[in-house]
Design a protein around this nucleic acid. Structure first.
Length: 201
DNA sequence: TCAGGGATTCTT
DNA sequence: AGAATCCCTGAC
């Protein structure tokens, strides 16, 4: 019986901050694709109006958030972009952390190819736009619905220590594109590494 | 069964 | 500022 990595048992907002500076790895047949996490958002259902699990909504899509923390919650947005999330909170409490930006660390050539296809030469703008957004980083790492529900650090998806981030280098602010969340729009549950170029716009 | 909308990205 | 694009959801 596989156990859950204890790091994922932390409180969601605390874990969100600690994820900054850690390395997200997709271990593929042709090598590791990886990047340092530089931006995340916390979603604390069922009380959080911005969360997919608000009000205890429990469907095929949100089901994994009701299970053990440390599993992958993937969803498709706007019919074309995948988003990668880490399930958090105790069993029965549907919380998650969305990874919105990473700084490439391993397998950059493969990532460029996955995102932009075959190019005679990749430009500076290709590198800059490789992983500075939730849909972009999934495309570059090759993450999709096939990874829904996988146990992190017990599968091809890994999150491991990489670099310590000082508390004063963490920026907290409101989450992006949640206009529907009414009084929860302004909760400062978006965290990023100050000044990092791979933080999304 | 179906209309409406979205935790985005790219182009104009 | 608007389009692309389609799965998920809730209502009927």
């Amino acid at each position: 019986m596989k156990t859950i990595d204890p790091i994922f048992k932390k409180e969601t907002l605390e874990l969100a901050r600690e994820l900054l500076g850690m390395e997200l790895v997709h271990d593929t047949a042709y090598g590791e694709l990886a990047g340092k996490i530089v931006e995340v958002e916390a979603y604390k259902g069922p009380e959080d109006k911005a969360a997919h699990s608000f009000g205890g909504r429990r469907t095929t899509r949100t089901e994994v958030m009701y299970g053990e923390p440390g599993h992958v919650y993937m969803f498709l947005i706007y019919g074309m972009h995948h988003c990668f999330n880490i399930v958090t909170g105790p069993i029965g409490k549907p919380e998650a952390i969305l990874v919105r930006g990473i700084e490439p660390t391993k397998g950059i050539d493969h990532m460029l190819h996955k995102r932009f296809g075959e190019k005679p030469k990749y430009l500076k703008t290709h590198y800059k736009n490789l992983t500075n957004g939730p849909g972009k980083l999934c495309r570059s790492l090759g993450l999709n619905m096939a990874h829904y529900g996988l146990p992190i650090n017990r599968s091809e998806i890994l999150i491991q220590p990489y670099e310590a981030i000082k508390e004063e280098d963490i920026v907290a602010g409101p989450r992006v594109n949640i206009d529907y969340a009414e009084e929860h729009i302004h909760l400062p549950w978006r965290f990023s590494i100050r000044g990092n170029p791979y933080v999304s716009k």
